[in-house]
Amino acid sequence: MSKQIIKTLVVDDEPLARRGLRARLERHDDVEVIAECQNGLEAVSTISQLRPDLVFLDIQMPGLNGFQVIHKLRELNQPIPVIVFVTAYDSYAIKAFDVHALDYLLKPADDERLKSALDKVRDYLTTAHQDEQSKKLVSLVAELTGDDCEEILRKLANGEAVETNPYPDVLAIKDGSEVTRVNVQDIQWIDAAGDYMCVHALDGMHIMRKTMKELEQELNPQWFVRVHRSAIANIRFVKKLVSHISGEYHLILQNDTELKVSRSHRDKVKAAMKM
């Protein structure tokens, strides 16, 4: 009976680290490295397109870190492959991942540790453990907020509490006797219309009676940024920021909606887009 070929993706922003890990993986005849990615955004796209069985995912990367890659895959409703985190952190990282039953490799990966990780992966892929691993991974990532991966790992290892997301996942919008639940992650932008807010989501527009300031306080500032006195945008739906000769800036959303960025909010918008 032939071995199952494990389609594998290597994600790391360091070319030497990718090359070294790939060389070690190629010594295992049931592992096929189908692609390499140099950042988190590229990883999300490649995982969605190629559907690898296994991903060696660096934690600390510019743009999207390893935790945020998992978040993004969940937002896109993409199946999550078996994940082996790769980290430069030491003892507390080991403890953290042991506690959460996730595997990891310390940089630089040695052959024995890699073999052990691959044996664990083979077990996941040939038993019902894969669903369990995926659930634990999602559970871990769901607990994490912010970008400071090192601090998150330190807290996990020391048994300290990790702050959970204080912002709601759903907005309850009341319209007369009806209440509509709108997933916050599906909100593209919000603009004001007199005393009402127009909430533009993937399933259409919803009207709610609330002030812009109240809404701004309810929404996670990691994703929602005030672009104008009367508009808030979800950065995840922004396609580009355009500057005009007049000096004005406009955000272009993925559905081609154009939102003017006021001068007083320009720096905050640029910071949110990591410019």
Results as ranks from 00 to 15, higher is better:
residue 97 F to P: 06
residue 166 P to R: 00
residue 151 E to M: 05
residue 158 N to G: 11
residue 175 D to K: 14
residue 122 R to L: 04
residue 127 T to W: 11
residue 206 H to W: 07
residue 211 T to A: 00
residue 177 S to T: 15
residue 161 A to P: 09
residue 85 F to M: 06
residue 107 K to E: 05
residue 175 D to I: 14
residue 169 D to W: 13
residue 191 D to P: 10
residue 91 S to P: 11
residue 127 T to G: 07
residue 93 A to I: 05
residue 128 A to C: 11
residue 107 K to H: 03
residue 152 I to N: 14
residue 165 N to C: 15
residue 177 S to R: 14
residue 205 M to P: 09
residue 96 A to H: 05
residue 176 G to T: 00
residue 87 T to D: 02
residue 157 A to S: 06
residue 136 K to R: 15
residue 192 A to S: 03
residue 141 V to T: 03
residue 182 V to D: 04
residue 175 D to G: 11
residue 96 A to P: 10
residue 162 V to Y: 07
residue 101 A to C: 12
residue 168 P to A: 00
residue 139 S to R: 14
residue 173 I to V: 03
residue 131 D to K: 15
residue 154 R to C: 01
residue 134 S to K: 13
residue 110 D to G: 06
residue 147 D to P: 10
residue 114 L to P: 02
residue 146 G to C: 05
residue 161 A to S: 14
residue 85 F to S: 06
residue 121 V to H: 05
residue 197 M to D: 06
residue 123 D to M: 12
residue 200 H to N: 12
residue 91 S to L: 11
residue 142 A to I: 05
residue 85 F to Q: 05
residue 141 V to F: 02
residue 204 G to F: 10
residue 87 T to K: 01
residue 170 V to L: 13
residue 92 Y to H: 14
residue 212 M to Y: 02
residue 167 Y to P: 07
residue 109 A to E: 11
residue 99 V to I: 10
